[in-house]
Design a binder for these strands. Structure first.
Length: 493
RNA sequence: GGCGGCAUAGCCAAGUGGCUAAGGCAGCGGUCUGCAAAACCGUUAUUCUCCGGUUCAAAUCCGGAUGCCGCCUCCA
C-alpha cells in the first residue's frame, strides 16, 4: 500500500511520491528558544517522530530537519528581563528542549540547525528577492512584497483583498501593502545585529526556515510540517519567499498537527493553563504521554486533562501486563524432548498468522496518513490475542508455542519501535509507574511492601481475616493487590 | 467581518458509499480465587446532532439548520 499524506495545500489525502525515489526530506518548524517546552510542543514532536519512524520502517531513507529559532523578539525580551545574553537564553532553552525530547523518547532529527548560524544564507536569499523585485528596502528594513507574488494565500486559502479588509492588520507606513512582511529588521539600540547590505539588523521570523531548508534539503523537498497555527502566516510566507526566489515549489506536501487543548479550553498564557513537558513527566511515564497523543488523529484537536492521561496510563499498563506475561513465558525453559513429540495444530498456527496479519494492518494504518489511532487499535487487538494465547496455551510445550512467542516478541517490538512505546522493560515500567504514582499521592512504597509481606504471611497461615484486613487497608489507598500462586504483586489504581 | 474544521456508546476515539460501526477507559455477567484483584470469556451504539435530497445502498456524498472550535496578532 502506498504512503498517503493529507496535504494542507490541497486539503486532500494524496499518494506520497518523493522527489528522489527511496528518500524522504522533511523539514519541521521547531521551537523558539525562550521558554520550556509545553505539552503542545510535545504533541508535534511525538507525531513527527512517529511519522519519521514509520517512513524509515517502510524502507525510506529520511532526512529530518527541525530548526531552532534562536533570535527573536521574545528571546530578546527575556534576555533583557533576566539581564543575561541572548545566546544565554537560547542555549538554556535549547538544552532543556533536548532534555525534554529525549525524555519523551523522541529521536533526534537528522539535523537541528539554528537560525543564527545561517544569517549568511538568509542574506543571500533576501538579496535574490530584492534583485528579482519581490522585496524592497525601506530605512534599513526589508519587506517582501506580497503583490508581486500571485500565489500568495494559496496554502491557507485566503486572498489578499479579504485579508486587507480584515480589521486586525497592523498598519505600517513603511509597507507598500499592509500584508507585506519583514525579511530583515533594522536593529534597535542595544539589540543584537548582523551586518548586511541594508545596514545593521537581524532577520525576520520567516526567512530562517526558507534559508535553512534550502541549504539542507534543496529548493524543493518532500514534506514541510508544523503546528496548524503556522499555516498562516508563517508557512504562507515561507512559500512566498522561497518560491519567488527559486521559481520552484518549496515543499510538495504540507502537514500540520492539531492543537492540544486543556480541559476543552485553548492552552494560553492568559488562561494560565500551560503544562510543561517536565511537570507532566514528573507525574507520568513518558510513554503514557505518547500513547495519549497517538490515540487521536494528528490533525484533530486533542483534549488534555488529568483524567485522559489517567486513562492512557491504564491502557498502557494493559500492554505492559501482557509483555510481562510474554517475558515470563519466554523465560520458562521448554523441555526440548517435548518439542518434537507434539505436532503443531491448525489452531495453533492460526495464532501466529493472526499476529502477523495485525502487523500488516498496523503498517497499513500508518500508510494511510499516519493513522496512529487505528494503528493502536491493532496493537490492542494483538494484546488481547496474545492474552488469549497465553491463557489457552499455558501448559503447552509444543514447538509452536515457542514459535508463537518469538513471533509475538517480534511483532510487539515492531509496534513499539514505530510508535516509540513499549520500549521499557515491563518490570521496570511498573516500578517506575509505582514511584510516580506514589510520589503523586504521598504514599510510601516501603510501607506498602511491608504490608504486602505481612499479608503474605497471614495468607500462608490461612489467617484470612488478617489478610483481608490488610487488603482493605491497601484498597483505601487505592492499591490493588494481585495474588498468584506463591507471590503477591500490587499496582496503584 | 473573512477563511477553515468538528459533531460517532457513560467518557475518550477510529472509520468518509455496501461484510457484524475499530480500539481504549468505565460498567455489568461468568471462569479463576480462601474471598478478591489481575488475566481470560461474554456483554454494553438496529445506529453515527437534527431536517431534507442523491443512490439499489449513506455515519460516509449534496443542501439546509443547530451547537462547538480554530485561524486571520506572537503562538506547536
Amino acid at each position: 500500500m502506498p504512503q498517503k499524506i493529507f496535504n494542507t495545500a490541497t486539503r486532500r489525502k494524496e499518494i506520497f511520491k518523493p522527489v528522489k525515489e527511496g528518500t524522504v526530506s522533511i523539514y519541521v518548524c521547531g521551537i523558539t528558544a525562550y521558554d520550556v517546552c509545553h505539552i503542545g510542543h510535545a504533541r508535534g514532536a511525538i507525531f513527527f517522530d512517529v511519522a519519521v519512524r514509520h517512513l524509515r520502517s517502510r524502507g525510506y531513507q529520511v532526512i529530518y530537519v527541525k530548526n531552532f529559532t534562536d533570535i527573536d523578539d521574545k528571546i530578546i525580551d527575556r534576555a533583557k528581563k533576566e539581564k543575561v545574553s541572548i545566546s544565554g537564553i537560547s542555549k538554556r532553552y535549547i538544552d532543556l528542549h533536548n532534555e525534554d525530547m529525549a525524555a519523551l523518547g523522541v529521536e533526534n532529527p537528522t539535523l537541528a540547525p539554528r537560525a543564527t548560524e545561517h544569517i549568511d544564507d538568509m542574506i543571500a536569499l533576501i538579496s535574490i528577492l530584492i534583485q528579482k523585485g519581490n522585496a524592497y528596502c525601506v530605512e534599513g528594513d526589508v519587506y517582501f512584497s506580497v503583490d508581486k507574488f500571485p500565489l500568495y494565500g494559496g496554502l491557507s486559502g485566503r486572498n489578499l483583498e479579504e485579508m486587507v479588509a480584515g480589521a486586525r492588520i497592523d498598519i505600517n507606513d513603511k509597507k507598500k501593502n499592509p500584508l507585506d512582511f519583514a525579511l530583515w529588521k533594522k536593529s534597535k539600540e542595544g539589540e543584537p545585529f548582523w551586518e548586511s547590505p541594508w545596514g545593521k539588523g537581524r532577520p525576520g521570523w520567516h526567512i530562517e526556515c526558507s534559508a535553512m531548508s534550502r541549504r539542507y534539503l534543496g529548493e524543493t523537498f518532500d514534506i514541510h510540517g508544523g503546528g496548524e497555527d503556522l499555516v498562516f502566516p508563517h508557512h504562507e510566507n515561507e512559500i512566498a519567499q522561497s518560491q519567488a526566489a527559486t521559481g520552484k515549489p518549496l515543499a510538495n506536501y504540507w502537514m500540520h498537527n492539531g492543537f492540544v487543548r486543556i480541559n476543552s479550553e485553548k492552552m494560553s498564557k492568559s488562561l494560565g493553563n500551560i503544562f510543561s513537558v517536565r511537570e507532566i513527566l514528573n507525574k507520568y511515564h513518558p510513554e503514557v504521554v505518547r500513547l495519549f497523543m497517538l490515540q487521536s488523529h494528528y490533525r484533530s484537536p486533542v483534549d488534555f486533562s488529568e483524567n485522559s492521561l489517567a486513562e492512557a496510563r491504564s491502557a498502557l499498563a494493559r500492554c505492559y501486563a501482557t509483555l510481562q506475561l510474554q517475558t515470563e513465558a519466554l523465560d520458562r525453559p521448554v523441555p526440548s524432548n517435548n518439542l518434537s513429540k507434539k505436532k503443531t495444530s491448525a489452531k495453533e498456527e492460526n495464532y501466529t498468522s493472526i499476529l502477523e496479519e495485525l502487523k500488516e494492518k498496523f503498517d497499513a494504518a500508518l500508510d494511510d496518513d499516519f493513522n496512529t489511532a487505528q494503528a493502536l487499535g491493532y496493537v490492542f487487538e494483538a494484546v488481547r490475542h496474545m492474552n488469549n494465547f497465553l491463557v489457552a496455551e499455558q501448559k503447552a510445550t509444543t514447538l509452536h508455542k515457542s514459535i508463537m512467542l518469538q513471533t509475538s516478541k517480534k511483532v510487539f517490538a515492531h509496534f513499539g519501535a514505530v510508535l516509540g512505546i513499549l520500549q521499557d522493560d515491563p518490570d521496570h515500567y511498573f516500578r517506575c509507574d509505582k514511584e510516580k504514582e506514589s510520589r503523586k499521592r504521598g504514599l510510601n512504597i516501603e510501607e506498602i511492601e511491608n504490608l504486602i509481606k505481612e499479608r503474605q504471611a497471614a495468607r500462608a497461615a490461612k489467617d484470612w481475616a488478617r489478610a483481608d484486613a490488610i487488603r482493605d487497608e491497601l484498597t483505601k489507598l487505592r492499591i490493588i493487590v494481585k495474588d498468584s500462586n506463591n507471590t503477591t504483586s500490587w499496582i496503584i489504581e
